[in-house]
Structure formats: C-alpha cells, structure tokens
Design a protein around this nucleic acid. Structure first.
Lengths: 206, 206, 206, 206
DNA sequence: GATGAATGAGCATTCATTCAT
DNA sequence: GATGAATGAATGCTCATTCAT
C-alpha cells in the first residue's frame, strides 16, 4: 500500500535500500561538484551520472529532473545554513561587536567552503526555480532576530533594514574571498570586517 | 585600400556602410534585451537575430560567435562605466562624505537601469569568457584614485582595500534594488548608504 | 512434479498460490485501465505495476514482456466474446430480424463497456503483435454460423460475405457510441440498426 | 519586416527558397511513409529525416515538433478530401442509387490509396492532437448535404443520422479492403455496397 | 516470490555555426 | 552583404528489461 503519489515529475524518489542511499549520496556529491565547476545550466546530467559512477538511468531513478536535483542540493544545504545560523545567534550574545562583525563576515565564507554549490545555486538568477529568494528571506529573518537582541530599542523595520545591510556585507565577504588572484585580499577582508563593525556599532549604540 | 580591416577570425567585422551601422545597433540592442531576459546561456543567436529583424546569417556577419557578441556588449558598456566613473570622480571633490556615499550607492544602480545587460554579463561567473575580472579591477582602480584624493595620508594598499569594500557596497546596492518584492526596500537602501558613509568617514578621517 | 509448468520464455508464468492470483488479477486490471487511458504504446510497465500496488519486479514475474501482458488481456477477453457470442447465437433463433439487428448492434457496444481494453488492443493496428486478426476471424465465423441458420439456402461464401458486413456494422456501432460529443447519437444508432435490419432482411429473405 | 510570429512551438516554418520547398516535399513524403508503416507513436523523427535524405536539424527547421509534422500531413490531406468529396457531391445528382452506393464505398478506399497516412493519422485515437474529430464532422456534413439533395422531404436530424451511417459504412469499406489475407474480399465488398444501397433506398424513397 | 535498484539504447528536440545562392 | 537552409553533436529524459538482495 503506497501513500506517496509518484508523479514522476513531482518529487524525488526516496531510496529504500542500502545501495540506494549510497547511490544518492554519490549522485548528490557529484552534482555539487559539477554545479560548482560549471554552473547550473552548463552542468549536464550525463556528466553528473558519470562522475558519480552511475548510469544516466540511475540518476533519473532518484532525481526525475535536473531541476529537482538542484533543489535537493539547495534543500539540504539550506537546512544546514539555518541550523548553523541558529547556533551563531545563540553564541552571539557573549561576543563583542568586533567579534560579531568578524564572525558574520566569516560565516558564509566558511559555509561556502563546506557546501560550495549552495551559494552558486542560490545566487544564480537564471538557474532553476530553486527559490533563492525564499532562502535569502529566511536567512534575513534569522539575522534580524540576532541583531534585535542587541538593539532592543530599535523597531522591527529598522532591524529589517539592518539585516539586509548585514546580509549584503556577508555576501561581499564571499565575493572578496572568491575573486581569483586578488592582491591584498586579506587586507580587504579586514577592511570589510571593519566596515561591518562600524555599522553594527551604529545600529546597536546610536 | 582599407584602413584597419581586422581579419583575425575572432574579432567582429566592422560595418563599412550606413546600413551596416544600423544593423549592428539593432543587433546589439536585441542581444542586450535577450541577455537581460534569459541570461547568457539561454539566449539563442537565432532569437537575437529575429528580435533585431535580421537573419541569422546577418548576425554572424558581424559577430562571428556568441561570445564575441557578448564581449561587444560588455566592451561598449564598460567604456561607458569608465567614463561616467571619471565624471563622478571629478565632481566628487566638492561633495560632503554623506553625499559621496549616496552618489556611490546610486551609481551602479543608475547605470544598470540604462544598461541592464552590463551587470548580468559581468557578474555571471559561468557566462562567457567575458572578462568581468578585468573590468572589476579597472573600476576598482578608479575608485581607489577617487578615494585617495580625500585621504592623501593613506597608503596605496590601504586605499586598495578601501576601494574593494566600497565596490562591494556598490554592488550590494544593486542587489537591494533588484530583489523582487522586498518590503522596506527604501529603508534598506538608506541604511546601506549610511553604512557606506560610516565607512568612508573612518577612511577619510581616522 | 508440476503439471503444465510452462517454461517457454515467452509465456507468462502461472501463479501457484492464492496470493499470486490476486496479484495477477490486480495487475491485469491495472493494465486494462492503462491501455484504455493511454493506448498500448504510451502505457508503461512501471505505471501498470504502480497502479496495481505492485513492484515492477513483481509485474515481470508474471508477465515477462509488455507484449505478453497485452496478449493475456486480449486472451482473457476474447474467450469472453466467444462465449457471449455463442449465447447470443443460441437465443437468436427466437428473435425477429428486427430484434436480431438490434442485439447485434448492441453486442460489441455492451461488451466494450465491460471490457474496454479489448477493442483498443484489438483494433489498434500498430499496437502489439496481439493477433487481432485471428480473433476477428473467429468472431466472423461465429457470426457466419449464426446467420446461416436463418438462411439455409445461401452458400457458405455468401454467408461469409454477409458475416463480414454484419461485423463491420457492429464495429460501426461502437464508433458511434464512442465518438465524443456527437449530437443526435441516439438517432444515429437507431438508423444503424435500421440499416442492419434492412440488410439482414435481404440476406434472409431475398 | 516580418509579420508572422515565429513561436518555434507554434506553427511550421514556411520554406522560402526553391531548395526549401523540395526539402519539405521530401520530408512530408517520408513522414507519410513512416506513419503508414509504423503508426504515429512508433515513427521516429530521426527515421523520417533519414528517409528524406535530410539531417535531423533540417527536419526540425520546418517542422518544430513531431506533432506539427503530423498535423501538416493531415491538413494537406483533409483539404483534398473535402475537395474530392465536393466533386463527388456535384456528380452524384445524375447517379442511380446503386451507382451512388458503389461510389461512396469506393471513395475512401481510393483516397486512402493515394494518401495512405490520412486514415491512419485520423483514426488513431491516441495519436497527436491531430483533430480527427473535426475532420470527421466536416466530412459528415458534406455527406449530409449530398444526401439531403436526394431526400428533400427529410428533416435535418434525419439526414444527419443517415450521414453518420453512410460514413461508417464507408469506413467499413476501408477495413475490408485493408484486412490482410481476407478470403472472398471482393464478395464482401459487393455485399457492403449492397447494404449501402438498401439503406440509401430506404432513406431516399421510404 | 517480492522488491527496487541498475542499465543503456533510444527519442524528441535545441542550437551554434557554416555555406551556397 | 544579406538570406535562409543545412548540419549534427549534444542534451534532458524515458522505459523495457534484468538482477542482486
């Protein structure tokens, strides 16, 4: 007796055997690599399968569409961001503004190192219907909550705007880390942190 | 005897007649629209030609590959950025730090409104071999020069780092302007300007 | 020692247990639905299995190919047609020509309502190698016998030709019943019966 | 200046050069053969192209979809049926009922010999969105008009029903002609004509 | 016997690019 | 120079069938 409706074009099929789980893991890993190296559009399902040591049919067994494949990755990663962001928020209470600025600037950079496909899939404007927007908003909401604890005297609207700014600076940190062959990269990172710190000071104290 | 007839197979052919210039203009315009609407990869040469009211053969007469077409667009636009950025630098001497911050945040946003394809082609990491990197560096250099006039006591390295930060904040402004359906967008923009101002104050005065 | 264990690789395996019979019944039922809804070619083994609540492997346990599956359906139904046609022939002795015409026109229509896959699989010229021809001939033979009782003075050849005509009119009845949204369908059916009656009169009496 | 909107998935592209017309003709011819031999679903675009001596890209240049290809065939043929049916109607006035019956039975059979794909594409229930229904209705309407001239005393509804019956008998003629290896085919055809004649007599005279 | 993962040839379709007219 | 037909490798995806567990 089945319950899940398998529309073949709806959701991914969930592996039910040991072998299946391993396959899916390899597939996801391979897909991640491909997306990072060549972007969503230029990644071919054939190559993903090949890189995972699977047949094309095997790939489609679990991910009925390239889009679903990308969504699965994003889903996986976005859960991780939320979780790690939550942890950051917890610890943030005991940090100085300077340390907070530093941690925030490092956050996405570090995350991207572990899950490189996340940022690529999320930012890519013309990628799939992977809803980067939804994720960005939720991240924003978490940041807003984090900041609000430190500036209880500010309105929600003020905190939202601040969260937007902080989020953009966090993204900027990635860009600086990512740009190939940038001279004085470390100094630039430090300056960005400094800018973040100045802004946070203003938000918390002003 | 023609002057400067470029025969290197990778360069676009320069139109020799009036009619040709109109053609090229229409082609470039059509390409720009397509790239904006669907991104580099998803844009087809056939559609560009069709939208310009030209035949596919005609398009290839002037732009021997899709990549060259994109590069032509970027070339055109990048000249414009440099020029406008130069003008900004000239005028910047008489502005308060606040006004400078505001102008910098508005700069790319305004530019993008006039030339939407520029940012798309430039940012898209996996698009063509359009060298966004070169452009980014030159823009950075211009910003560095602009900032250096106000902070003569700073070293070149310090100014480079500051230019990187400023550039990133300018890009952030685009992102905020571009995100669909963002609530409190105006407040966020204002906050970003504020962050820029705080940072510039520190750079100039500290 | 099993009796009649069919090992020829093209024959379906006969289920040995209670559970197996239920399975097969569900499978056949599901297949019937699929064939009716989407035709032979468009029906996938995977969907048949899913609709029967079975796994694809289970389906192949009993029906080694898609073709065998279709043949099993046709086999099942064709036995039923022969049987029902036999009953019709028995009763036909006591009917007026008018009533006979009416019954004949209704026969396939009624049968199709109970076993919709039969006609689809049988008529579809390019479907499987289901031998619709054989069935058509046997049905024809039964009709010929039925008619011959009423027209003993006619030769076999004459009766064969008449059976062909009657059979075609019976098929026509299905078409009229099946065409979607036909206006005045009832009147058309009545007219077809009338045509059948006129023809039978001629055959029997002329 | 173009006028026709080329939606690439909408309509077929019309050839504009000599070469193009030849290609299209060859393509259509090849498609017709394939559809006849294997039916709509089993026909592959690759084979159509190959049989026409064209590349697959060339085929898609003119027929953006397999469905459009089929529709083009049907369109072409249906215009021909209407025209020939019109001619038949004109001449029918001077025919005896017997001759009319004979001509009607022969009509589709003859047509099918010249355009074998027509019937296949039109009758195939699960083919494309080729609207066999629309064509069938229009043919029916023509038949109704033809019959109405001979039976002015009949109502429209009566004539419609009669047209349905006549059309079905015409289709039956095809079936009899088409069935492989039928013994006594000629006698059967004659009987079908006879049945048609009996029916027409009744309609016209009764 | 049941299950579901694995396979890969095959299909419709796309698109950058070339070339004859 | 312009036009549009030609090309074919490449892509996303399907599905009948096999097989290890």
């Amino acid at each position: 007796m089945r319950m899940s409706s398998q529309k073949s074009s709806e959701a991914r099929r969930v592996p039910q055997r040991q072998r299946g789980h391993e396959r899916v893991a390899a597939l996801v890993e391979a897909a991640s690599e491909c997306f990072v190296e060549k972007g969503y559009e230029a990644t071919t399902m054939t190559e993903v399968a090949a890189r995972a040591g699977a047949s094309i049919g095997s790939l489609y067994q679990f991910f009925p569409t390239k889009e679903v494949l990308a969504q699965a990755l994003v889903e996986q990663y976005s859960q991780a961001v939320y979780a790690e962001l939550g942890k950051l928020a917890e610890q943030s209470a005991k940090w100085s503004t300077e340390e907070l600025a530093q941690r925030l600037c490092a956050f996405l950079v570090t995350f991207r190192k572990r899950h490189p496909a996340f940022v690529i899939l999320t930012e890519s404007a013309h990628a799939p219907s992977v809803d980067g927007l939804t994720i960005r908003r939720r991240v924003r909401a978490e940041l807003q909550a984090l900041l609000a604890r430190r500036a209880p005297h500010r309105s929600n609207d003020e905190m939202h705007a601040a969260a937007v700014v902080v989020q953009q600076i966090m993204k900027a940190a990635i860009a600086i880390h990512t740009e190939p062959g940038m001279p004085g990269r470390q100094a630039a990172v430090t300056q960005l942190q400094h800018a973040m710190q100045l802004y946070l000071h203003d938000v918390f104290g002003g």
